[in-house]
């Protein structure tokens, strides 16, 4: 598979805040060429051999920087990565030449059952070893360093032997990978499990963090749900600012994945994130 013509090399630190690309906005993006700094695409949605998804991918990639963000590597499953799936991912990476390749620090499947959910891992040495080995395998196959994202969770395992941030840092070190720091997920987990989100940020190695996500959530009282279906909460904006102070004004994606409003609404929220990044860059 030949790569589509590559745009000029993108300096990651100039990316600023982009948005996720969703079906609801395909027409607006293809026909309007809106002002968006970069797009993050769900890798699995564009692994098709042809048809409209491939057409959208190729057209968008010719006009914008693109990141590939996967949901099916299942890095924490205690089993080898599906080689056929890994080959498809590698082919997609070669074709797209994305600015960033990422997936989640969680597990989704075991054997022939894929839950299609980002399921929580116990924070144990065993889980560190399993995830790190798989991340190294992926990086070797796709020929580049990847970022792994911290996920939102609603349960903690009794058998965990370390904190979540210690676990994430240990995986990044063992795998020699980068981190995609989801600010909303840090906030959600802090509320759901009773820890200080600032302690989480302070526990991560600065040099490993390469990107941010910001998104909205639903507060249901006893539990906060990571729904990505509403604007970013004020507390998450505050935590975003704290993350920028610690890690720098990194490339950021504003995630709005459900109850998706018109593109202009999403762009407006991304602009707010961009103002915060720009202000930090001027300091």
């Amino acid at each position: 598979m030949t790569a589509i013509p590559h745009r000029e090399t993108t300096d990651l630190m100039t990316l600023g805040c982009g948005i996720g690309l969703h079906r609801e906005h395909f027409e607006a993006v293809l026909e309007g060429r809106p002002e968006v700094r970069w797009f993050e695409l769900i890798s699995e949605n564009f692994m098709a051999e042809g048809g409209r998804p491939r057409h959208v991918l190729d057209t968008v990639r010719q006009q914008y920087p693109v990141a590939l963000h996967g949901v099916s590597l299942s890095l924490g499953s205690d089993e080898p990565i599906d080689p056929a799936y890994l080959d498809r991912l590698a082919a997609l990476v070669e074709h797209v030449e994305p600015v960033i390749v990422s997936d989640h620090l969680c597990w989704t499947r075991l054997g022939a059952h894929n839950s299609h959910d980002l399921l929580p891992l116990p924070f144990t040495e065993e889980a560190v070893d399993v995830a790190a080995a798989k991340i190294r395998r992926v990086q070797e196959r796709v020929g580049r360093r990847m970022l792994v994202e911290n996920v939102s969770t609603y349960l903690r395992y009794r058998d965990s032997t370390m904190s979540e941030w210690e676990f994430v840092a240990a995986v990044a070190e063992a795998a020699d990978c980068g981190l995609l720091l989801d600010i909303n997920n840090v906030y959600v987990n802090g509320r759901n499990h009773g820890f200080d989100p600032q302690e989480y940020l302070d526990g991560l190695p600065v040099a490993r963090v390469g990107q941010f996500h910001v998104a909205g959530h639903q507060d249901q009282g006893d539990v906060i749900l990571d729904t990505h279906d509403r604007p970013v909460a004020d507390e998450v904006w505050d935590l975003f600012g704290a993350a920028i102070r610690r890690f720098g004004p990194l490339p950021t994606i504003l995630e709005r994945d459900d109850d998706i409003p018109p593109l202009a609404v999403v762009q407006e929220e991304a602009a707010r994130a961009q103002e915060i990044l720009d202000a930090a860059g001027r300091r």
Partner: peptide, 27 residues
């Protein structure tokens, strides 16, 4: 079986059912 810690609010059983329901609703 006690696989999960009790959360600060609600119960582990309720939190577990979030995953069960989300699994079905998504599919």
């Amino acid at each position: 079986a006690g696989a999960f810690l009790a959360p600060p609010r609600g119960s582990a059983g309720d939190r577990w059912r979030v995953y069960r329901e989300a699994y079905r609703l998504r599919l």
